[in-house]
Design a protein around this nucleic acid. Structure first.
Lengths: 219, 219
DNA sequence: CGGGCCGTTGACTCTTGTCAATCGCGGTGG
DNA sequence: CCACCGCGATTGACAAGAGTCAACGGCCCG
């Protein structure tokens, strides 16, 4: 599904930093072009990652090809931390992207290493869990329109702007929300007709016009 | 929604244990009758918990009452660990149950405390995340029949027996799988007609007869 | 023995999925 | 610079899976 990871020897720009911290905080940067795979479900988890640029999608697929995108990771987000030595989902670039790869630590050593970075890794796990719980509510109990409204609000919040550049395709959005591309498209059209959003001609960005109405839909 | 937590002074049976470990490992036991609440979404997270007996459901509700049960916790499981000082979901006893309550530690102190118990808490978070990711695939991409089959297989695996005593109602199952009670019931009937399961007269237990057929459905 | 609650079943509705056609942006090559 | 082309997105018509509403069944408990 993707080329084997060829990690070049890490540069060590801070030789004075204590070893434990250095091992954690220094990683190698890797550029990814759109749709390029980073790792697959079942791969040995030799590294975990932080997004530097672009968007990463993490997902699982059923034997017949149905796909569920767990999350989109954006600059600053940490992902790919595993308890076992195998990745439990696949990760690909949803757009041109760049990540920093950190050598995997055992949970044991992560817990023992103090320092800001270890804290950050733990926090990122808690954040992933919190988002997963919110997303289960969305997947299990919200209508198509509510799902799309919630997705747009979430993206706007993460980007910090009412004008959202969507870094992923309709197919990605559909597989994240548990819908089909047709239903995503129809829901967007419906929101636009109601005046809650505006979609420019290129169809790649969305401007949120009426936050309170969207929030009301988000239930 | 539930009475305030009245935690009695903890018994200290191991006065020789170092303080850091003792603080983590000693808790107070609390009995819960069926449907009794333990904490609500938004409550201050003063404690986290380990199930001793019975089953706990953790869930979120939308403003109009739609409910999504994230997970069922069973004996040995740890739940209610939060990054912030607020619980992000509610927890109630799905059956008569008992839990041990541990005083909340900050992520910081959890990371710094070494020892088996801190490891266990971290592992439980990773397990919750892994289960949440699997469950998102189920909620987003599986049919009703596949959902019920997966649920039964999961319960059988956790219990370690093909004869599963279901500690929760059809309503709980429905709210866990993103279905209605009617659809859960119809799916169970369908599985029974196909000879994959047997349901005794009391309707509270399920015997799995054909694991490979159920696994095939699980996709 | 009676009643309530949980679960099951049936008839019908409706949201969402499926299949198919068309649109139109954006890149390519003349 | 302009025409062509490919792919992602949109739209429409129809099908199907799951939800809704309602009635009934049968444990279980008083």
């Amino acid at each position: 599904m993707h080329a084997a990871l060829a990690v070049s020897p890490a540069l060590r720009p801070f030789p004075a930093v204590p070893v434990a911290l250095e091992m954690l905080a220094v990683g190698t940067t890797r550029a990814l072009s759109k749709d390029q795979g980073l790792f697959c479900e079942g791969d040995r988890a030799t590294h975990f990652y932080r997004v530097v640029k672009g968007t990463i999608r993490s997902f699982k697929v059923l034997s017949d090809g149905r796909r569920q995108i767990d999350a989109f990771y954006m600059p600053g987000d940490i992902f790919g931390v595993e308890a076992s030595d195998e990745h439990r989902f696949s990760a690909e670039a949803a757009s041109d992207a760049a990540v920093v790869a950190y050598r995997r630590r055992s949970l044991q050593s992560l817990a023992e290493a103090d320092g800001k970075f270890a804290q950050e890794v733990l926090s990122s796990m808690m954040l992933a869990l919190a988002r997963a719980q919110d997303h289960m509510l969305l997947l299990g109990r919200k209508s198509a329109l509510e799902k799309v409204a919630a997705f747009l609000l979430g993206m706007a919040e993460r980007i910090g702007d009412a004008a959202v550049e969507l870094p992923m395709t309709r197919m990605d959005i559909a597989d994240h929300l548990g819908l089909t591309i047709e239903t995503v498209s129809r829901s967007l059209t419906q929101l636009e007709r109601k005046g809650m959003i505006e979609i420019p001609a290129n169809r790649r960005s969305v401007a949120l016009c009426n936050f309170s109405a969207l929030r009301r839909l988000d239930a």
